[in-house]
Write a protein that binds this DNA or RNA. Structure first.
Length: 194
DNA sequence: ATCCCGAGGG
DNA sequence: CCCTCTGGAT
C-alpha cells in the first residue's frame, strides 16, 4: 500500500518546508501549495520574510486559515532563525520547538523530511485517527499516541509510515465516512465496518 | 455541521 | 484540561 508515499507540501529546502508546515495547521496541504509559490517568490529567505509587512503576509496566506496567528508565527520564527540560528533551520526537536508557532508535529516533519532524522513520529490528525482505528494506540493525546508509535516503529519506518497514513486518511480512512469496503486493512482493523 | 499534515494561552 | 484562532471544501 502506498509504496511511494512522501511529503506532499511543496518545498525546495528546509526553510520552505518549515514555513509550509506551519501553514498546514487545520488546512489541506493542497491549499498550502496554492499560496507558497507566491510566498517563496517574494520572501525566499528568513531574512526577507522577517522583514515582510504584516498586511502583505496576511493577504498572501489568508486562505490557509488562522492567518493572523500564522503571520505572527512566520514573522517570529524568521526573526528567530536570523537572530539565533544564523539564518539556518536547526535540526533538533528542542531547537525547532523553541521557534514561535512550531510544536512537536511541525518539528518532526522538518526533522524527518528535510534532515532524515526520525527520533519521533509525526502525529497529525490523520495519523492520530488511523492509529486509533487500527488499534495501534488507545491514547487520544497526540504526544501519547506518538509514544505508542515510537515503540511500534523502527526509525527507518517512521517517516514513510506517516506519509502512508496521510495518503490512506485522505483516500480511504477518511474522518467522517471511512470507505472500509475499499480498504486493504479491513480484515485486520478492529474498527472496520465490513 | 464537520473536517483539514496544530499551536498557544488560560 | 479547556478554549481560541480562520478559510475553504464537502
Amino acid at each position: 500500500m502506498y509504496p511511494d508515499s512522501r511529503c506532499s507540501l511543496e518545498h525546495e529546502n528546509a526553510f520552505q518546508l518549515l514555513v509550509a508546515t506551519v501553514l498546514s495547521a487545520q488546512c489541506t496541504d493542497a491549499r498550502v501549495n496554492l499560496v507558497t509559490p507566491e510566498l517563496f517568490a517574494r520572501f525566499p529567505t528568513p531574512a526577507a520574510l522577517a522583514d515582510a509587512l504584516q498586511e502583505e503576509l496576511e493577504e498572501i496566506i489568508r486562505t490557509t486559515g488562522f492567518f493572523r496567528s500564522k503571520t505572527k508565527s512566520l514573522l517570529g520564527l524568521s526573526a528567530a532563525l536570523e537572530d539565533r540560528f544564523d539564518g539556518r533551520v536547526p535540526s533538533s526537536v528542542e531547537e525547532l520547538t523553541s521557534l514561535p508557532g512550531v510544536g512537536r508535529k511541525t518539528a518532526n516533519v522538518v526533522l524527518g523530511v528535510a534532515y532524515g532524522i526520525a527520533e519521533g513520529v509525526v502525529v497529525d490528525t490523520h495519523v492520530k485517527r488511523i492509529a486509533y482505528r487500527l488499534g495501534l494506540t488507545r491514547q487520544t493525546d497526540p504526544e501519547m499516541v506518538e509514544q505508542d508509535l515510537i515503540a511500534l516503529l523502527p526509525e527507518k519506518e517512521r517517516v514513510v509510515f506517516t506519509h502512508r497514513m496521510i495518503d490512506h486518511g485522505r483516500a480511504i480512512c477518511v474522518a467522517r465516512k471511512p470507505r472500509c469496503a475499499e480498504c486493504d486493512l479491513h480484515d485486520i482493523c478492529p474498527s472496520s465496518l465490513v
